[in-house]
């Protein structure tokens, strides 16, 4: 210590924000594991046409319901077997990752953007506006989410795009409530008052002073609802209200195969596993993200 204090004071170069983020993120093993799995899925989704051995809609009539390669009757031509129409499971799963990520990203972006803005406004608005917004959100929340999504899709017409819109609307109130709750508690604090004393306007207070301090729970919620969005899209697909056959969407694949659950386990298991692993990886990553983004959890 004595040596340290003897050296003349110099201005330390601070590590770049990205490196700092990685340092804290990498301390959480689960999160890093989640990130790698997530990266693998992103890779699959990005290069799906190159990775998939066959066209996902191509039907091999001579290989209907062929089991995976390691089982009796399987062959390495179709490593994960084929479905009731003789389409290659592996190709369909790889192509399906595209739809799932597309759904997750679009739904989360739309729901977060809308929810955060409405929540911030509600937290800063006069009381009657706040009450009005919150009651509308309560009404949306009072419906079972899948049921509401189903009704919305029924109105808009069944397709993947409409399913995404419906899910985003259903998710919105969670973000509004979460943002508003954080805003109300942060607003009380002295640093907000001192920003006001420094002359900060409403917009600056909302987006620069208060919003960054409310982000931690929102990021976790976003990561969690990324996976919920995939699940809900799968559920809507399963009920025939999401992506339409022959789209290789994971939920739709589950729905098509449910009558074969006892005869050909692989047709149901692999899409289900794909959903499970993706959702789990994203949840793990979300946890690590929160830890890394919250400066209160950092050490000096």
């Amino acid at each position: 210590m004595a040596e340290l204090s003897a050296t003349p004071p110099k201005i330390e170069e601070r590590p770049s924000a990205l490196r700092e983020f990685w340092y804290y993120f990498s301390e959480n093993r689960g999160a890093v594991f989640g990130l790698w799995v997530f990266a693998a899925f992103v890779f699959c989704a990005a290069f799906a046409p190159l990775l998939a051995p066959y066209d996902p809609t191509e039907q091999f009539r001579t290989h209907i319901l062929q089991p995976p390669a390691w089982q009796e009757g399987g062959s390495w031509a179709f490593p994960l077997g084929t479905d009731p129409l003789g389409r290659d499971m592996l190709s369909r799963l790889i192509m399906g990752s595209r739809y799932s990520f597309f759904v997750g990203i679009v739904v989360v972006c739309v729901a977060v953007t809308g929810g955060v803005i409405v929540g911030l406004l509600s937290g800063f608005a006069p009381k009657w506006v706040d009450t009005l917004i919150m009651r509308v959100m309560d009404i949306i929340l009072s419906f079972p989410s899948l049921l509401l999504a189903l009704v919305l899709v029924a109105i808009l017409g069944p397709s993947l795009t409409n399913a995404m819109i419906a899910i985003a609307i259903v998710f919105q109130p969670h973000y509004v409530r979460l943002t508003r709750a954080s805003v109300l508690s942060e607003r009380q604090k002295d640093y907000v008052t001192s920003a006001r004393v420094a002359g900060a306007g409403k917009a600056r207070l909302m987006f620069k002073t208060v919003l960054p301090n409310c982000l931690a729970p929102i990021i976790v919620q976003a990561a969690l609802s990324f996976s919920t969005a995939i699940l809900d899209a799968a559920a809507l697909g399963f009920l025939g209200m999401g992506a339409q056959p022959p789209t290789p969407e994971w939920g739709t694949m589950l729905a098509e195969a449910r009558e074969f659950i006892l005869r050909a386990w692989w047709v149901v298991t692999f899409p289900g596993l794909a959903i499970l692993v993706t959702v789990l990886a994203i949840n793990l990553m979300g946890d690590g993200l929160r830890d890394a983004l919250d400066p209160k959890l950092k050490r000096s």
Binding site: D190, Y191, S194, A195, V197, A198, T209, P212, N213, P295
Partner: peptide, 15 residues
């Protein structure tokens, strides 16, 4: 006119 608050733990923006 500027102010210094009582609680130094709440008066600085943690972000």
């Amino acid at each position: 006119v500027q102010i210094v608050f009582q609680d130094p733990y709440g008066s600085l923006n943690p972000r």
